[in-house]
Design a protein around this nucleic acid. Structure first.
Lengths: 153, 153
DNA sequence: GCCTATAGTAAGCCTGCTTGTCTATCTAGT
DNA sequence: ACTAGATAGACAAGCAGGCTTACTATAGGC
């Protein structure tokens, strides 16, 4: 039977990549959400911020959105309806398919895109300062590699 | 009025640290949960895996757990009750305080701790292979720095 | 004409918490 | 000692977020 050394076991539990990654991701998301709220986009929830990146600048369909975001069409449709009610998106009839609707950005939606771009640069600049250019580049490289490695598993 | 170049805007949306961090964290968590399930701990949910690291090897109190995990005592109490029902934890009367209960690991709980330690080393070894030693060290350094920087903000 | 695809409506579930309230116990002040 | 207030924890109810399943209507493709 195993008789572990409690101190050694405790020490090994302190912190690990998983927790570090989770904290970093959570901090980034909180920062991004707060930033968007500060820029006036106070009605956007994390679910919206998660969906919007999957909509092309020139627009797209609910079905496409659902596929990319990995959720059901109904879920995507609901989020789109909310974003429509809040003025970010609008529906246009698809000229080539009577069943489909083209989901496109409104003017407010476009402003959101630009704000998101600005905010992203701002946050990345902060991180760059904290880490220094080399570590920052290494972080990006490492995460990109991990994305490739884990997606193929 | 701003007239953005749609192509440039689209290109800038491709991917960024936030998404990379989120993906990496999600992959790690999925890997860890799957690993624990594979080791027989099929009744542990992400919420349990999030709480357990805050319990010292020698045990502790509900209140301490709640503080560390950043949740209410009730929430911590509920999770502990579930873990008790599943056989990982048990309650002992605190000899020094009649109100309090000492939450301690059962034998199964200790096995979980050892399995978690093993699994952690396994996953970290995988990551190290994917990234190479230098990039791996850089990743750890960068995330640790970020943890320090963002926690102080 | 038949099968499939797009999307909307309605209802509801799951996870992971929270608030509100209560008892038992401890601590400090008088 | 006695009492006022704080603290540990339990019990109950419920909510927020983010989905899902089930069903219907309509439009296209072969």
């Amino acid at each position: 039977m195993i008789q572990p050394d409690p101190d050694a076991l405790q020490a090994s539990r302190e912190t690990h990549v998983g927790r570090l990654l989770q904290n970093a991701a959570r901090n980034f998301n909180a920062r991004a959400l707060a930033g968007m709220h500060a820029l006036g986009h106070t009605q956007l929830t994390p679910a919206h911020l998660n969906l919007l990146p999957y909509l092309d600048v020139q627009g797209g369909r609910i079905t496409t959105l659902a596929e990319r975001a990995g959720m059901t069409k109904q879920a995507a449709g609901q989020l789109v309806a909310e974003l429509e009610a809040r003025g970010y998106l609008t529906r246009q009839a698809d000229p080539t398919d009577g069943r489909a609707a083209r989901i496109v950005f409104t003017e407010l939606g476009t402003r959101f895109l630009l704000d998101a771009q600005t905010l992203k640069r701002e946050i990345e600049a902060e991180y760059r300062v904290w880490l220094g250019p080399e570590l920052w580049d290494a972080l990006q490289a490492a995460l990109t590699l991990l994305a490739g490695a884990t997606s193929s598993v």
